[in-house]
Amino acid sequence: MKELLIQTKGDTPALALVKDRRLMAYWPLEAQLELAAGAIYKGRVGRVMKNLNALFVTLTKGVEGFLPLSEARGTQPRPGDSLLVQIKRPPQGKKAAYLTQDISLPGRFCMLLPYGNYAHASKRSEHRQAMKRRAQGLRPEGMGLVLRSKAEQATDEEIQAEIARLQADWEALLQKESSASAPMLMAPAPGILERILMDETALPERVITDDEKTADQLPFPGLIHPDPFGLYNVLTQLRQALRRRVYLPSGGLLVLDPTEAALVIDVNTAQDSKRAGDAYLRTNLEAAAEIARLLRLRRAGGMILIDFIDMDTDAQRLQVQQALETALRADPVKTEVLGFTRLGLMEMTRKKTDAPLPAQRLHEEDTTTNDA
């Protein structure tokens, strides 16, 4: 069963997504939606970096974003100009937020592109060509439209109603922008609960919260419980998932080492394994499912290298790759599995949408147990 837990009280207010009692995703309620992916600003151009073909845009006092000229619209902006920009990737560490002027407004069934002029469908759509033709017929004149995979189960009337709502949101934003002084936030990123409803391929079957007001605001019935996280030991599961060494039920071990360039994951088997070939394959298949869960839970992004246990045949390697791809389908964030390199490492990428979870400020007692 897929359940959404909302805990608003105590030291760790957060949302947690649980499937069959296992923690799949975790969002601190204190997350800064103003600097999350999707937030829209009226910014002011600052430094122009000709050698990088980019410029820095002030978003708010003391906060700049990085705008490549390839993401800019029209003529090259000059210092002091005001621009409407959207955060494509949030700031991480010393890296500034990555910006674009190709604004997109997300909905549950579609994504409206006010400055676009094309129609597309999600790569996850089972009937993508048919959905692209459908998008072309529904696309508002002078705008772009991308139909999400959920649109396959929606009627044209439902999609058109969402398009009309997004168009109204855009008109309201432009009206606000016309009288605003840069730099200023025009629209924060969608809230966590809103993102869950938009992004999850299958909605939670049950919601449990400790707050009656929150339950009243849900689009479906919610249960009240004084300690939702305590039902499934969410914080214990979170601590275990954020450690450098994560153990598999079979006795195998994952070692996760984030670097500046990539996240490197090493898969190890139990030392007392018998019939090594079969045991290694079973451990690798188990690791593939767990890695998919951990990548989402830890909000890993960018390049990821996985050193699975050596396998005897190409058929076994293909089986492990397919298991990883299947497990990643539940992840709403875009992922791509590129396959094994000549050195035997699995290459994959996961789109950077949020700061990695270990970088989030958790309650002190919940972080001190993490491995170095």
Rank of each mutant, 00 (worst) to 15 (best):
I40R: 15
L173Q: 13
V63W: 03
K351G: 03
K9M: 10
L248R: 02
Y118G: 07
P356F: 04
A315C: 07
L59D: 13
P332Y: 01
M24W: 03
S82C: 06
A330G: 05
Q322W: 02
G339I: 00
T367S: 11
L253T: 14
L295K: 01
L5A: 13
V246Y: 01
A54K: 03
T236L: 11
G107D: 06
L203E: 11
R195H: 04
T259Y: 08
T259V: 12
I196A: 03
L67W: 01
P204M: 07
L324V: 11
L29D: 05
L235P: 03
E177L: 04
V207L: 15
A168T: 12
L55N: 06
L67K: 09
A372T: 06
A262S: 12
F220C: 10
R239F: 08
K213Y: 10
P258T: 12
H127Y: 10
I103W: 02
P204H: 05
D102N: 05
I309L: 12
R293A: 05
T283L: 04
L295H: 00
A97C: 07
A276E: 07
D227G: 02
N117R: 13
R329L: 07
L305G: 14
H120W: 08
L242S: 04
K95Q: 15
A182F: 06
S149W: 05
E162L: 08
Q92S: 13
Q32K: 14
L231P: 01
D216R: 12
I40W: 06
I208L: 07
T313C: 00
T155Y: 10
T368C: 12
A189Q: 08
I291P: 00
L55G: 09
G251L: 10
M131Y: 08
L203F: 05
Q240S: 02
G191V: 13
G38N: 07
I304S: 14
S273G: 08
P332F: 06
D354P: 00
A300P: 01
E194Y: 07
P190K: 10
H120F: 06
R298S: 06
A315K: 14
N51D: 15
V146G: 05
D156A: 09
Q92A: 13
A31W: 01
D314I: 03
L256Y: 00
K334C: 08
E126N: 09
K150G: 00
Y232T: 04
I265E: 03
L145W: 11
L218F: 13
T214P: 12
D257W: 05
R44A: 12
L305W: 01
F308L: 05
L112M: 07
I304H: 11
L174R: 14
S250Y: 03
R243W: 03
E158Q: 15
R134G: 09
T60N: 11
R243H: 10
A16S: 02
R329N: 02
K351H: 07
L17D: 04
W27I: 04
L83V: 09
R165D: 14
V255W: 00
Y247H: 13
I196D: 08
